[in-house]
């Protein structure tokens, strides 16, 4: 089939940081060809200066993460026919949230620094005297979701938090952390959860935008792993965080009023003794009042809010039995 590709180019030796050039290629491809097949054909037959990473061609090495039509993908498993229609152009760019080295090649050093940050190795207190650790097979199969991660960086590329906050540990490294938190052979579970709960950029910084779940080519669903760690961290007694207070305040307010009490949520998330944060909030409050955006001090109640309260009570009693 006839296909058109528009490829983002950057050469650090001739262009300034942040600049880019678009090159267009028109080519005839096998109907089941992948975006990677097309890029390799360009590199081999048209333009030997095009830089990209690729190795296995079978979605297992994680080298070829790129943005195709604005979304992070492994190009080796992205078929041309699935991302284009007759007459349209496929747009190929380097992944986002990573520095660009050349053309489609990005720096993954910060990515792996964050992986390192979560102490990504098994830490048992002691090893069995003989043979392997004896553990339930289901607990091992459970870990496979995260073990499927091939560190391609697609989730980090499209993470909306990392776009604005470089400190966020990010979906890939947090999924890696989950893999050890959930491993029954590891004896640092509590320490890991405490650290992930407290550290800057930890588990509470995810905004649940679902982007990492959407773009992960290996169904790791990093966001789900992060949410599970929030629950586990709370259960393990880590409650002195704005994340936990936010969760509590949110649910208390909805249970009581059937609605979110936004003013109280902000204050309670900060914590009543967190003076510096409360001063910040006061400033925001004043600005909100001036712009007419201040939520009501006494929250409105939803119609028939007692029904919502009953739902909460029922769920809570079921959970307790």
């Amino acid at each position: 089939m006839n296909s058109k590709l528009k490829v983002s180019r950057f050469d650090p030796e001739t262009m300034g940081s942040g600049q880019r050039r678009w090159d267009e290629f028109e080519m005839d491809l096998h109907p089941s060809a992948t975006v990677l097949d097309a890029l390799i054909q360009i590199r081999e037959e048209v333009d030997g200066t095009l830089a990209l990473r690729c190795a296995c061609r079978a979605s297992i090495c994680g080298s070829c993460g790129m943005r195709v039509n604005g979304e992070a993908k492994l190009v080796c498993k992205t078929r041309i026919a699935d991302v284009t229609e007759e007459g349209t152009t496929i747009v190929i760019e380097p992944m986002g949230n990573h520095g660009i080295i050349k053309d489609l090649v990005v720096s993954l050093d910060p990515f792996f620094d964050k992986v390192r940050q979560v102490d990504p190795y098994l830490q048992p207190d002691e090893e069995p005297e003989q043979g392997e650790f004896v553990v339930n097979n289901d607990s091992m199969e459970n870990l496979l979701t995260a073990m499927n991660c091939i560190m391609c960086g697609a989730c980090v590329s499209d993470c909306t938090v990392l776009e604005v906050d470089e400190a966020f540990i990010g979906p890939a490294a947090l999924a890696k952390a989950w893999r050890f938190v959930e491993d029954p052979r590891d004896d640092q579970r509590d320490e890991r959860l405490k650290e992930l709960n407290e550290v800057e950029g930890g588990i509470w910084d995810c905004t649940r935008c679902f982007k990492c779940v959407e773009v992960c080519p290996k169904d790791v669903a990093p966001m789900d792993r992060i949410m599970e760690m929030r629950d586990m961290a709370i259960e393990a007694g880590n409650r002195n965080t704005s994340g936990y207070r936010h969760t509590e305040s949110f649910s208390k307010s909805v249970k009581k009023h059937g609605r979110l009490d936004e003013a109280r949520l902000a204050v309670e998330s900060a914590g009543y003794t967190n003076i510096p944060r409360l001063i910040d909030l006061a400033e925001i409050g004043v600005k909100s009042v001036l712009k007419g955006k201040m939520p009501p001090i006494v929250p409105h109640k939803a119609d028939e809010n007692e029904k919502i309260t009953r739902i909460f009570e029922r769920v809570e009693s079921e959970r307790n039995t």
Partner: peptide, 12 residues
């Protein structure tokens, strides 16, 4: 022991 998640039998 290093951490590989090998598949297991019923006996763990």
């Amino acid at each position: 022991r290093m951490g590989v998640i090998f598949s297991r039998g019923e006996d763990g």
